[in-house]
């Protein structure tokens, strides 16, 4: 079904866009659920001495560069599963906009909007590349 107004997205496109957005919302809820569960688990397991303790906050007053890989390795070695769950929830959260942009690129490709699809794909690749900027080589 096409619209009679210039450059107005068709009903079908709009419906697909909304589905993508609803998927994003589900992703946010899943991520929030993981974080909340991990945080509560850590709080119970450590009797308040883990995440968010006074000592932990005091340490956050001074910036110390430590790559995520090193942090995760030490958490795995210490079997700090609740904290790892929190990290997983945070990672899922960061991935959501990438998913949105990727699906938008597909959406435009299906509508034969090659230029916009290519732009969205470019944004997606730039987002992937931006992640690697955080890695210490």
């Amino acid at each position: 079904m096409t619209s009679s107004l210039p450059n107005e997205p068709s009903t079908g496109v709009r419906r697909l866009e909304l589905r993508i957005a609803v998927l994003l919302r589900a992703g946010v809820l899943a991520s929030a659920g993981l974080m909340a569960f991990g945080w509560a688990w850590e709080w119970v397991a450590s009797a308040g001495d883990g995440l968010g303790s006074a000592e932990a906050f005091a340490a956050l007053g001074n910036y110390q560069s430590r790559p995520l890989s090193a942090e995760l390795a030490s958490l795995v070695a210490a079997q700090a599963w609740p904290v790892l769950l929190c990290y997983f929830g945070l990672f899922l959260l960061v991935l959501l906009p990438l998913v949105r942009v990727f699906l938008t690129s597909i959406l435009f490709a299906r509508q034969r909007e090659k230029l916009l699809s290519a732009l969205a794909a470019g944004v997606f690749l730039a987002l992937i590349a931006s992640f690697f900027l955080g890695l210490e080589i």
Partner: peptide, 13 residues
């Protein structure tokens, strides 16, 4: 955010 995350600047606390 992704770059900060991998750099280790995102603290779950």
């Amino acid at each position: 955010a992704g770059a900060f995350f991998l750099r280790g600047d995102v603290r779950p606390d």
